[in-house]
Simulated scan of single mutants.
Amino acid sequence: MRGVAFLLAIAVAGLAGCADDRREERLRAAGENPDLTALLRVADASAGRRQFGRCAACHTIAAGGPNLAGPNLSGIYGKRFATGNQRFGYTAALRASGQAGRRWDAAALDAWLANPQAIVPGTSMRFAGIPDPLDRADIIALLQES
């Protein structure tokens, strides 16, 4: 049994090393009190893919992937709100919010990922948001390349 525990400890340590996203190094490179532009300069789409796990319960990101409770997000960057996925029924709250003409650029994604309810009160997206600005920047980097 001790051998199994030892092997498990090695596997966990190895996986932790695989997830090393150089977070502290990237934060230092972004500077003191970095804004979104500075964070995007150090953002890492691979780290964003890991962070996207928070989103994966409701969204897929692969091209041609299915809609779940939320729309597939492949190619969403640069598209207009509530128009990115013709197969998804966007909520009336989103369509009526005045945001429908806005594009999913870095600033819009950052605000949405921080607190969707603040952008579109009444949205059916029941997600509290991602408080960490670097985590949001990493997800944005992923969405930019998806």
Score class of each variant (00 low, 15 high):
L94N: 09
A43H: 10
G98A: 14
R80H: 10
L36Y: 07
T83Y: 03
S46Q: 15
G53C: 02
T91S: 15
I76T: 09
N33D: 14
A69M: 14
G78F: 08
H59I: 06
F52M: 06
F88M: 06
G65A: 01
A82S: 12
G78I: 07
T91M: 07
A38I: 04
N85A: 04
T37W: 06
R95A: 07
A56T: 13
G78R: 06
G98K: 14
A100R: 14
R54G: 13
S46T: 12
R87V: 07
G65L: 00
I61M: 11
G53R: 10
K79T: 13
K79Q: 14
L73D: 02
F88K: 08
H59C: 06
K79F: 00
A96N: 15
L40D: 02
S46W: 14
A45Q: 06
T91C: 14
A100K: 11
D35R: 04
N33T: 07
I61E: 10
A63P: 05
T60G: 11
G65Q: 03
N85L: 01
P71E: 02
Y90C: 07
R80S: 11
G89F: 09
D35L: 02
A100S: 15
A56F: 12
H59Q: 09
G89S: 14
C55F: 05
Q51E: 15
A47C: 02
